[in-house]
Design a protein around this nucleic acid. Structure first.
Lengths: 212, 212
DNA sequence: TATGTACCTTACCGTATAGTACAGAAGTGC
DNA sequence: GCACTTCTGTACTATACGGTAAGGTACATA
């Protein structure tokens, strides 16, 4: 869907691109992350990437396509890191890693942008743009399915009682994820976010142990 | 903090204002709600309110003050409606009313703006604007405290077991509230939102009954 | 009725915005 | 080496943006 560069070398004729697409998309993403979609100008993006505007337009089309490329890039990265956390065998460790990853992502040590990139930028635009709205919805459903699968795996492996319904557990975890994003943006500290996540994990254990 | 007009008549001298402040703020709010803060122009607001720009500037200051006034207006309305739902004696009825109110607000029957006004507009701006960030944080804490108080009241009145901790229950409900907003903006249907809310209320009953 | 005040309206200002035309440079296949 | 393709850089356009100057007007007090 989006042009690739760094990975595949398609052996084209003319002069090869002088920048790395993924790196540029990362800088684009960080800028949108801070200022929002409408609040970010192409000049800002040009300054952040070091590319001149015609290069950006040539490589990505227009502002919206550039944004969607950055969003794709972000979501792919998120999915990969989630998969990594989910791959941890012990359920508690896995969930802890997941929440801690969210906190690290949403509240970076350097003074980067806070909260979830998608929640902070796409939600606003989703109101009037069905294309962005669709991406948001698909992302939400994808996350939810992945979490349900992780709980189901724990049930299958006997880490949770056999009769447990994974869906409410997933619902709690997903809601917590979005809430962490919002609270990070609202200025809560890492410690407060960690405490919130810990209470959520306690709650999940309670519900899982109970509904057996 | 913000100018009032419709309620108090301060007996000023000159020509009285020819518009109703609350009504104008409502139209301003709806416009910001749709397009976001940065995505809304003063010309749009002028068209939406029927007021010319100098009137808007004269009455509210600049774009940001106008936005903050609309946000205050929204949050006051939300608090009032929440208080109404919380005043319902039976806990289940009260929580159902609360969630249904959220759904109605976030997914209006006419094709108005979806999701929570604050979540859809202030979250983006909160990244770079501490004033907006503070409003968001205070609003979140205010909501959480109100929900805790409602559960505590149910405990005091014997509608929930005496030993129950109201905090996890409040955490579930608050997280659900924000999730409803996000999903509404992402295009979920009213039925899907209602189903999500019902599952949340089931979960709260389970947790409350269990942790007794 | 006189007077002061705050309103409404039109027209405007400087700047920032998204997007582009064009010329030149740089790399690749033949 | 040559031709072709694509990138890079500068300069630009037309429009939209937030915000305002200034004159006229309607209302409440006195």
């Amino acid at each position: 869907m989006v042009q690739k560069n760094s990975a595949s070398a398609p052996a084209t004729r003319g002069r090869p691109r002088g920048f790395d697409t993924d790196q540029v998309l990362g800088q684009v993403r960080d800028t949108f992350w801070r200022y929002g979609y409408a609040g970010t100008s192409m000049d800002q993006l040009s300054a952040a990437t070091g590319l001149h505007k015609p290069s950006l337009y040539g490589a990505f089309g227009d502002k919206k396509r550039l944004y969607l490329a950055a969003l794709d890039n972000y979501l792919a990265e998120v999915r990969a890191e989630f998969a990594e956390a989910f791959a941890i065998p012990n359920l508690d460790d896995s969930l802890y890693a997941l929440t801690q990853w969210s906190i690290d992502k949403f509240m970076p040590a350097d003074d980067g942008a806070t909260g979830c990139f998608m929640m902070n930028t796409a939600m606003t635009e989703a109101g009037e743009d069905p294309e962005i709205s669709r991406v948001v919805r698909e992302s939400m459903e994808s996350l939810e399915r992945a979490v349900v699968r992780r709980f189901q795996k724990a049930i299958d492996e006997g880490q949770l009682p056999a009769g447990v319904d994974p869906n409410p557990l997933a619902m709690i975890l997903v809601a917590n994820h979005y809430e962490l994003s919002g609270r990070a943006r609202a200025g809560y500290s890492r410690a407060e976010l960690r405490a919130l996540a810990d209470r959520t994990l306690d709650l999940i254990r309670t519900v899982a142990g109970v509904a057996a």
